[in-house]
């Protein structure tokens, strides 16, 4: 059973790759309309959790429910309502940004009008201007990332799963993306993201989960844990919790 208003419910999630246990008994809930952040060092299991939520990977054991659907048995019913931005998501070198957005929008929307509006929204979100008509192989890393963030949000997903959304962006574009994410949530969307940037998470996320060695160490409001532990920021809070 899902909790009231919970858009994601994860219970006792375990994921193994051969001998390696990437996720070990994770349980968490994400409420509708919040920005939920996963924090942890490299190899903590954040990306694996996000991939399972995005229906890319199957859990070894445990239960994952997204939007009221079982993530294992009803993955195809979940996909129209979510969008996933992989940490290292690439682009099609020989397509222009607009062509790519147009192809994706036609996959998500049955009406041409809706698809065209989504493309225009994505062009606006990406901030690429006229460069959106250039082939994507001419884009810088930052431009590609902005286009992918725009692609992930233009479909107005009920749940946007963003793995390191501002990775590779300069401070100006990272700020722009944070604003876009905030606006998306204000307009009724829900976001779960992972980030190495603790300041970003502190600024953006309603609640956070500390992930370490495949386990959840803490779930709650960022400000609450900082206050509770008597530290000055989220980074110090994580180190304090992980060191216990």
């Amino acid at each position: 059973m899902m909790g009231a208003g919970s858009i994601v419910v994860v219970r006792n999630l375990v994921k193994r790759f051969g001998d390696l246990t990437a996720v070990n008994g994770v349980s968490l809930k994400i409420e509708e309309g919040e920005v939920f952040g996963l924090i942890g060092p490299n190899g903590a299991g954040k990306t694996t959790i996000l991939r399972i939520m995005a229906t890319l990977l199957l859990p070894t054991s445990g239960y994952v429910n997204i939007l009221g659907y079982d993530a294992v048995k009803e993955a195809s019913r979940i996909r129209p309502y979510i969008s996933y931005l992989a940490e290292d998501a690439g682009t099609y070198r020989n397509l222009s940004g607009r062509e790519y957005l147009s192809i994706v929008s036609r996959i998500y929307f049955d009406s041409n009008t809706e698809a065209s509006m989504a493309v225009e929204e994505a062009v606006r979100i990406s901030g690429l201007g006229e460069r959106v008509d250039d082939k994507m192989k001419t884009y810088s890393k930052g431009m590609k990332r902005r286009l992918q963030v725009a692609r992930a949000l233009m479909t107005r997903p009920r749940l946007a799963i963003l793995d390191e959304p501002t990775a590779g962006l300069d401070v100006f574009h990272a700020k722009h993306i944070r604003e876009v994410v905030s606006r998306h949530v204000k307009e009724g969307g829900t976001v779960v993201l992972s980030s190495h940037n603790m300041l970003e998470v502190e600024y953006l996320c309603t609640r956070v989960a500390f992930i370490h060695r495949g386990r959840v160490l803490f779930v709650g409001e960022a400000k609450a844990i900082i206050k509770e532990l008597g530290v000055s920021n989220l980074e110090e809070a994580f180190i304090e919790v992980a060191g216990r």
């Binding site: 995005a54 229906t55 890319l56 195809s76 996909r79 129209p80 979510i82 969008s83 996933y84 931005l85 992989a86 290292d88 998501a89 690439g90 682009t91 099609y92 070198r93 994706v104 996959i107 998500y108 992918q148």
Partner: peptide
Amino acid sequence: EEKTLETLLTFPVT
């Protein structure tokens, strides 16, 4: 190579 397959596989297509 270009890391696009993972994204493609999350689209609402079979």
